[in-house]
């Protein structure tokens, strides 16, 4: 009987740790999402639109989940350094230059990236800013 109780307490503790870990990530995600939304509004929305719909052929939409997935290691670099190449999004070519935002800190870039990749119908999940910092050091 005693063994049974100890075992169940141990099991309960393990489950509690796992659950609380997930909670921490969910909290982080929510945190990034709400901060990211503010940054999006002030820096990105004027061209990319409130719902990530883009602007004609001047600014591409942010709703192409396939593009976001295949380029997920470059997104942070696009956000911070801008883009000056032809990008194919939803099968259409976009050639306009995107401006750089050098004033954004790594954590800002991470937050706005997480916001974009988990809004407008995208669902790529959480990326911590340590990961984003690494990506930013390897920008071409």
């Amino acid at each position: 009987m005693r063994k049974y109780i100890i075992n169940s307490i141990f099991l309960f503790a393990v489950i509690a740790i796992i659950v609380s870990c997930q909670n921490q990530e969910t909290i982080d995600l929510q945190n990034y999402m709400s901060n990211g939304k503010d940054i999006y509004k002030s820096r990105c929305q004027n061209c990319h639109g409130e719902n990530g719909e883009g602007l004609g052929e001047l600014a591409p939409p942010l709703t192409d989940s396939v593009f976001l997935k295949t380029n997920k290691n470059r997104l942070a670099c696009f956000i911070k350094n801008g883009a000056n190449e032809t990008l194919v999004i939803h099968g259409k070519e976009y050639k306009e230059k995107m401006p750089a935002f050098p004033e954004l800190a790594d954590i800002d870039v991470a937050q706005v990236m997480v916001y974009i990749t988990n809004s407008f119908g995208n669902k790529q999940g959480f990326v911590p800013y340590t990961e984003v910092s690494k990506q930013l050091q390897n920008c071409k």
Partner: peptide, 13 residues
């Protein structure tokens, strides 16, 4: 212009 013009012309559209 990357600041207010895109919004202006999005709305004017």
């Amino acid at each position: 212009c990357t600041t207010i013009c895109p919004t202006m012309h999005r709305n004017l559209m």
